[in-house]
Write a protein that binds this DNA or RNA. Structure first.
Lengths: 213, 213, 213, 213
DNA sequence: CATGAATGAGCGTTCATTCAT
DNA sequence: TATGAATGAACGCTCATTCAT
């Protein structure tokens, strides 16, 4: 594309996403994670993104839409990972362990992202109810429920469990484990501590799911 | 605990807690549950309590203290229940089942209370960090962790689990299960549906904890 | 009223209108007249009323409602005057002259009020369309149209005129005469100049209305 | 007049006014008439003109100048008509009737234009005070006043009337008659209704002016 | 000429908190 | 105790204007 023309792509874009929009979204993740929904001011995001106040409103209709986008993006990443794990090889236990592994690994390098992902999901219930957040979350539950169903079909997991409730518990345990780290109840200062928490949480939830438990 | 309570013996009724204070607290539970932290305005609470605006500030230093008190009260109820269950007879599994049973039962008659208890705990992290909420929450984790430790001591639960992480997962699964009901992912319209969700969630988490799983 | 009780009526009221509300409304008339709808900032009104910013929103839902109230009040005064003139004695010509006289007289002592009354009526059409302004204006037209009808009934005014159109013209001529004074096209610095403009305008419009003209 | 026009011969078409500038001006008339001064956003005009945002600022220094130009253009049309009528044959009454006729006729085919012409004249007083609008308006008044003077000189109109005040009333009655149609007080849905309103208004004002009334 | 991204001051509105009674 | 009027800082959003290309 753009063959022969001047190779411009300055402050703008060329079929892709404007870099300033990226910067805003990127900054929003951190500010949002740091200060929560109510404490996350547009001015903070703009400043963190080294961008003029008004530009936020050039790319996003309003605060809700901006934070919805943050949600959507973070969840999209997680969803892709879950789906890839889901469609890949391995037992149901492997896959669930894989999901846990992914989230804990991301936490090591980008705790803010995980924080948004996990901590704020249920939080802003009302304000964002109309948005796509809830559907996205439901889809995640369904995706994990599918993993459970497959595992039940292969006789790996307890057949009597309701897959949706099981999926809820799987993600719930994951959420509070990460919450615990974020809040400081569960120690997670070193990589080893994080790995330890990961192993424990994984073991715990898998123990409840395995057939013949 | 007496957090935020007026120091001198208040109330027009001598000896007890002033009824207006009660009304405010009571109203706050519902408004808080209904609208969340940010959406919960002092004016709403006062109106719902059929009390003058300023009276809220007579009994509570500020918004945070009011909502802290709501937390504290709801958690106190749960803590007492947990403690009673803890100190009572039965295996660790019985006790954990008892805790789950208690929360789900309260949900049947007072979903607002549970909503506050569960949904808002991690939410308002930053705003309330200075307050007693976190300590209360930690104490709950420790209480459950004690149950786990006791169970491990008696050989009922897997000895290799970190009690704190286990407790975190126990409450985490509980949280998201209830969240699921509140948000509507998990069906909970009838008493039977709620009981079913309770059984499933209990089974799931206990499966992960039992020794020889 | 208030017999025997402590004669309090401090910053408050006693069955009447709070004085601060009065002050805000009073200030709004001037600021509105001075700067027009768009230029009239809430901050200006508050400052002019020697009142805190937020108090404006204590008494008025928003800017539109405030300015609607200004309209309503000014028009109410005019309407009362018109109605009194209408119901009083005299020929239709006397009554129309009376209305003109009233408006020009008010202009001498309170040009701001007239300015709001006249200049801004049609102006903020869209913003205030939903409000009561238009209905009020229509009522004024009807009231004047009634005067015309009565005059036609008594043979004083041309019978072939549509009373509504006549009323529209009567008020229109009045409006632009006053507009002319406000804007400076028609000289109105001294009381004499104002009276001269009044006489001329009255004569002009009456000339068009009188039977056998 | 050339107010606000790009100095050098513009347009891709050599010799005339650039068509984009035309489009902007044309669009501005409608948006302005539709939304009023404050509601008329540059973005709206640009969109309606199918032109890039920034181009508006290429042809006009700022919003005020754009809307001044709209005024100027519309008034120029009216002024030319008035002047032609003025310099043409006929009595003063004929000429005034001609002016009324012109405005009402334009209203039939381009109500937006008349709306701008009439409704917004006095409105934006302050914002545009520095501009040429007022002078233009004053010139219109003078032009009509000249017609009155001529009529007085020929003994057709009452000699005792101040020509300026008379002109003010003539235009005032015209304004409110049209305003009434625009706002909906005076019925103007069919051509017949418009014509009826025209005749009534004309008769009314001429009745006030004719000598021996 | 033409584009539209980028800027930032300005303003309406909310709402926790205080205060006079 | 109880009331609710009064305060003002804070923040979301708009939109005229500029600028780089």
């Amino acid at each position: 594309m753009n063959g022969g023309r001047a190779p411009r792509e300055p402050g703008g874009h060329a079929g892709g996403e404007p870099e300033k929009r990226r910067a805003i979204l990127h900054a929003a993740v951190h500010v949002f994670a740091e200060k929560g929904y109510q404490g996350c001011r547009i001015a903070d995001v703009a400043r963190a993104a080294h961008v003029a106040y008004g530009l936020v409103y050039h790319y996003f209709r309003n605060k809700d839409e901006l934070l919805e986008s943050v949600f959507a993006e973070q969840w999209a990443i997680l969803m892709n990972a879950i789906q890839a794990i889901d469609e890949g090889p391995g037992t149901a236990a492997d896959k669930i362990a894989g999901i846990y592994g992914f989230v804990f690994d991301v936490y090591k390098t980008a705790p803010s992202a995980v924080r948004v992902l996990i901590l704020e999901v249920t939080r802003t219930t009302h304000a964002l109810r109309a948005g796509s957040t809830r559907e996205t979350f439901e889809r995640a539950v369904q995706l994990v429920a599918d993993v459970v169903r497959q595992g039940q079909g292969r006789g790996e997991l307890k057949p009597e469990l309701d897959p949706v409730i099981a999926a809820t518990a799987i993600l719930g345990a994951l959420e509070l484990a990460v919450s615990g780290m974020v809040v400081g109840i569960v120690p997670a200062r070193t990589e080893e501590e994080i790995d330890r928490a990961k192993r424990q949480a994984t073991e715990l939830v898998l123990g409840g799911l395995r057939a013949g438990g």
